[in-house]
Amino acid sequence: MTTTATDHPPAPPADGALHKAVLRRKRVPYWLLLPGVLWLLVFFAAPLVYQASTSVQTGSLEEGFKVTWHFATYWNALTEYYPQFLRSVAYSATATALCLLLGYPLAYLIAFRAGRWRHVLMVLVIAPFFTSFLIRTLAWKTILSDGGPVVRALDALHVLAVTDALGVTEGHRVLATPLAVVCGLTYNFLPFMILPLYTSLERIDSRLHEAAGDLYARPLTTFRKVTLPLSMPGVVAGTLLTFIPATGDYINAELLGSTDQKMIGNVIQSQFLRVLDYPTAAALSFLLMAVILAMVTVYIRKSGTEELV
């Protein structure tokens, strides 16, 4: 009894100190979040709000723009530029599919068969990033130039006759055709497909392949029933990382395409920088965001991997 009595008095102050320490520790996450949140506020949220207000303004450069809640800009932009929207989605979807077809076998090879070459190959995948996006696309312009070795070789192999017939190239040239733009998009976004694919494939325990083989699965069945389902997070992440930026891209269409291959990114760019019709440009940007968000939502729902992304 006496011992407990003497033990009690110093307890409240100690309790208070403990309470303070707990409070301080609880605040730590917020301090850690602060730089990121500030960054997002200044460079993401603020411009977003600014553009949102721009999109409902009317006026001209000379008289100045005023917020008039003119939502018709959206409708006008959509009716005028829906071909570019459709084209963007079509090109981007094709490029994403091509990236998946090219990237999956490569990522698979690097993850499971490359052995000690694994790291070298990964460096090679990332190597293009050491050169600017613009320079690399310009290089493609040279590669695909009319009468260049690539075009001549394709023509000699009658590939261009086939692609001409399919309508993706025209007049035995590659440059300034849909094929050139899709090839450029595929090339530029391929690493964004390979990296997440590789990461998810590499995480698969190779003993699962052995277990599948041990349980009567042939190699192709093992791939279909074990490897592919387990790499779905990588497939979803890779397609999103490819499709989203490719849809809004304008460099490839600008450098490798003609006016007939203009994508929505080109329209936004010219509205902002050449036509100086800021409300239309801003409205188009928001429409693009909405389209992408809607498609991605449907895609993630369909692939049933919400918890994996």
Partner: peptide, 27 residues
């Protein structure tokens, strides 16, 4: 291996993480 009439219980079990117990056993 897939043509041999033997089955293995692996050291780390190597159960398929994307399948439930029923499907693992039915594999």
């Amino acid at each position: 291996p897939y043509k041999r009439p033997v089955n293995t219980v692996f050291q780390s079990y190597a159960l398929f993480p994307h399948l439930d117990i029923y499907e693992n056993v039915a594999f």
